[in-house]
Design a protein around this nucleic acid. Structure first.
Lengths: 201, 201
DNA sequence: GCGTGTCGATCGATCGATCGATAGCATAGG
DNA sequence: CCTATGCTATCGATCGATCGATCGACACGC
């Protein structure tokens, strides 16, 4: 990717996250990227194409990281800890990507939305499988697995809306706290929690 | 409020929630409300005034309900249960209000945003105080109260994004599950949980 | 006749997108 | 070595459409 092309992507990410897709004009986008509005179209298709590219690349990275996190352990509690750590770190370190991904799905036209929703579903299936494995193994205590999964994911995604990377709390500490909260939420037994060094590593 | 005025409010609520403030045009709004775009201005000021009215009335109701929920008990755990129940029920039963309130704050001009943010802060202070009381009384176990409060609120607000009132899960059951999840998350001791009939009432 | 409601017509501004033109820079042909 | 050719990158000007908002006119009930 050319430097200017990268600046366009970055400008779009910032503006879409901050003002929303419909709230961002082509001219604002061009000004932020340091080019004319006409030059913009040398680096993108339509404005929507740009949004789709941002969302899919962000989601593909998330899906890849989730699958890698799960592959790093065969213990459900360890997998869960790795997933929470990865998810929270991603949302706290790259809040722009995740805010756009969460808020602007409705701005997409139906065909583009299908692709994005399919990616998001694939991501959530990773979590679903880990939770199901954990309950089958008896190391999680879930009254209502689907509800618990949604509650957990919403809780973890929330950091993108408030975490300040320049604040007193480090990314690692933040992730540690959330792993502990997730364990409580899902009823990880105390014995398992102690044994699972993977969780806090 | 006149019937037409109410239809305008309802149309705005639906469209702002579904397409966003900037994604909703005056003409769409008029069509949904069943009037001409000119007549719209008989019932509102600017488009932004309408958004502000929707957000403040929704938030004022939430603040009032929160203060009422807290007033109904002097036990921190009971207060917490009532808060969670109220919050989850509100978000599940009126997802349009809460989605607009959560997503469109950035669409407001600075003076209007101030009012809305002040209301939201007042709401969160109710939660903050209950959590602090609970920890002071030794019935909650919070490693990082501010972080726990945010995690809890994000978890509970999430229901507005996925709960289907026509689905198999009733509002009351949903709220029950979330009260239980909140108790786990905040480390409500088992003895307190059993004793607190208020929590599940 | 006067306040309340309603609307078609239209305002200036801005929207996303395209146009043709231009400048820079490579490489190939003589 | 020179210049012809073609490709990448850039922009001012401008397109038709739509934006939020306003106007004057008309209808109805008190």
């Amino acid at each position: 990717m050319t430097p200017t092309g990268e600046r366009v992507r970055q400008a779009a990410l910032e503006l879409f996250a901050e003002r929303g897709f419909h709230g961002t004009g082509i001219r604002q986008l061009a000004e932020r990227a340091g080019v004319s509005s006409a030059s913009l179209y040398h680096y993108m298709g339509t404005k929507e194409d740009l949004l789709v590219a941002l969302m899919t690349s962000s989601l593909e990275r998330l899906v890849g990281d989730a699958e890698a996190a799960v592959a790093g352990s065969d213990d459900p509690v360890g997998q869960l800890g790795a997933l929470v750590r990865m998810h929270v770190t991603a949302h706290a370190a790259r809040p722009l990507e995740t805010r756009v991904g969460d808020h602007e799905v409705e701005a997409l036209s139906p065909p583009a939305r299908e692709v994005v929703v399919a990616l998001r579903d694939r991501y959530e299936q990773v979590w679903q499988r880990v939770l199901a494995d954990g309950q089958a193994a008896g190391v999680l205590d879930l009254e209502h697995p689907a509800l618990a999964r949604r509650a957990l994911l919403e809780m973890c995604s929330g950091v993108a809306r408030w975490f300040d990377q320049a604040g007193p709390l480090s990314l690692a500490d933040l992730a540690d706290h959330y792993v502990a909260l997730a364990c409580r939420l899902l009823g990880v037994s105390r014995a398992t929690r102690r044994g699972g060094a993977v969780i806090s590593a």
